[in-house]
Computed example of a mutant assay.
Amino acid sequence: MYESLENFPLRKINFVKTRTTILKAVSHLLKEKDFSSITVDEICSRAQISRGTFFNYFSTKDHVFHYFLRIFTIRIALRIKQWPDDLSFEEKIREIYKWFNEETQYSRFVDSYINFLLTVGEENNEMKLIDAEFVYFFNGIEEEEYAYYNNLTLNTLFQDICKKAQEAKEISLSDQPKELANLFAGVLVSSYITDQMNGDVDHLAVFSKIWK
């Protein structure tokens, strides 16, 4: 297993650098307009690549968003692995919510994800990372874990959190973990949106009462 991106063959190094360049280009454009308004031509211009190059790396513009979502999901999963065993359900909600707000480099992608949840709901993400990207973006993921992380969704993570909370009797709702995970996402989304409108109220505490 390679320890750094520079140890990979040049072809893979260029692959990672180009996909990252495209991701950063979209991130910069998101400071100017909504994701739905961004065109492939604008992405290519900002990334200084041709349309042909863009489509060599992403089949559609939406796949750039799914690429971010794959990276973001893995980042959240790795943080969850570091949680102490005695962390309460309410503390877990607050931790994840804090991570959403701490995402500064790709903050507008988080906004797009919130809108994505509201309009579409989480679907299977077909974007996968190659081995060089795992090494570039993350530290400590074993090669045999790549498939697991490439198929992980935030909804799956939320389901696991809710299931454990049910087993520990921290929440009284008897819904299936999948439905609870949707509710979990709804609490995060509602808190995120209302905090943007009025940051003087602890909206997460308000919406979290739904679990009581």
Score class of each variant (00 low, 15 high):
residue 162 C to D: 04
residue 197 M to P: 03
residue 110 V to N: 05
residue 201 V to D: 03
residue 130 I to H: 12
residue 167 E to V: 15
residue 200 D to Y: 14
residue 122 E to S: 02
residue 198 N to D: 05
residue 181 A to G: 05
residue 151 N to D: 09
residue 157 L to T: 00
residue 180 L to A: 02
residue 129 L to H: 00
residue 113 Y to K: 04
residue 180 L to H: 00
residue 120 V to D: 15
residue 128 K to G: 06
residue 121 G to F: 01
residue 174 S to W: 14
residue 173 L to Q: 07
residue 201 V to R: 03
residue 178 K to F: 12
residue 166 Q to V: 08
residue 158 F to C: 01
residue 139 N to R: 14
residue 115 N to L: 15
residue 187 V to Q: 10
residue 189 V to W: 07
residue 153 T to L: 11
residue 123 E to W: 07
residue 113 Y to C: 01
residue 173 L to K: 04
residue 167 E to K: 15
residue 176 Q to Y: 14
residue 189 V to G: 10
residue 190 S to Q: 11
residue 137 F to C: 02
residue 151 N to A: 03
residue 196 Q to H: 07
residue 110 V to G: 06
residue 185 A to H: 08
residue 199 G to E: 09
residue 113 Y to L: 05
residue 146 Y to P: 00
residue 147 A to H: 13
residue 152 L to Y: 00
residue 145 E to S: 06
residue 199 G to M: 05
residue 130 I to V: 11
residue 127 M to V: 15
residue 146 Y to K: 07
residue 191 S to P: 02
residue 112 S to Q: 10
residue 120 V to I: 14
residue 153 T to H: 04
residue 190 S to F: 07
residue 152 L to W: 01
residue 193 I to F: 03
residue 170 E to W: 01
residue 137 F to E: 02
residue 161 I to T: 05
residue 152 L to E: 03
residue 120 V to R: 15
residue 119 T to V: 15
residue 115 N to P: 09
residue 138 F to H: 10
residue 136 Y to G: 09
residue 136 Y to P: 02
residue 134 F to P: 08
residue 164 K to H: 08
residue 191 S to Q: 01
residue 155 N to I: 11
residue 121 G to A: 07
residue 108 R to F: 10
residue 185 A to N: 12
residue 121 G to Y: 00
residue 180 L to N: 01
residue 118 L to K: 14
residue 153 T to I: 07
residue 108 R to C: 06
residue 184 F to V: 01
residue 119 T to M: 14
residue 200 D to W: 14
residue 164 K to A: 06
residue 188 L to N: 05
residue 119 T to E: 14
residue 165 A to Q: 00
residue 181 A to P: 01
residue 139 N to T: 14
residue 114 I to F: 05
residue 146 Y to T: 03
residue 183 L to A: 10
residue 137 F to G: 02
residue 195 D to N: 11
residue 110 V to R: 04
residue 138 F to D: 05
residue 143 E to L: 11
residue 130 I to T: 12
residue 113 Y to R: 04
residue 145 E to P: 00
residue 188 L to F: 14
residue 196 Q to N: 07
residue 129 L to C: 04
residue 195 D to F: 07
residue 145 E to K: 03
residue 117 L to Q: 13
residue 173 L to G: 03
residue 125 N to S: 09
residue 179 E to R: 12
residue 126 E to M: 15
residue 121 G to M: 02
residue 195 D to A: 12
residue 197 M to R: 11
residue 182 N to I: 08
residue 124 N to A: 13
residue 119 T to K: 15
residue 141 I to W: 02
residue 131 D to C: 11
residue 129 L to D: 00
residue 168 A to W: 12
residue 199 G to Y: 00
residue 196 Q to D: 04
residue 178 K to W: 10
residue 156 T to I: 13
residue 166 Q to I: 10
residue 193 I to Y: 02
residue 152 L to V: 02
residue 126 E to W: 11
residue 201 V to S: 04
residue 149 Y to S: 11
residue 173 L to A: 06
residue 169 K to S: 15
residue 120 V to F: 14
residue 129 L to S: 01
residue 200 D to R: 13
residue 121 G to T: 02
residue 148 Y to C: 10
residue 179 E to N: 13
residue 197 M to N: 11
residue 199 G to F: 01
residue 110 V to S: 06
residue 159 Q to P: 01
residue 188 L to R: 09
residue 160 D to I: 14
residue 180 L to F: 05
residue 157 L to N: 00
residue 197 M to E: 13
residue 178 K to G: 06
residue 113 Y to P: 02
residue 181 A to Y: 10
residue 111 D to M: 07
residue 110 V to I: 08
residue 149 Y to H: 09
residue 201 V to L: 06
residue 170 E to S: 08
residue 170 E to L: 01
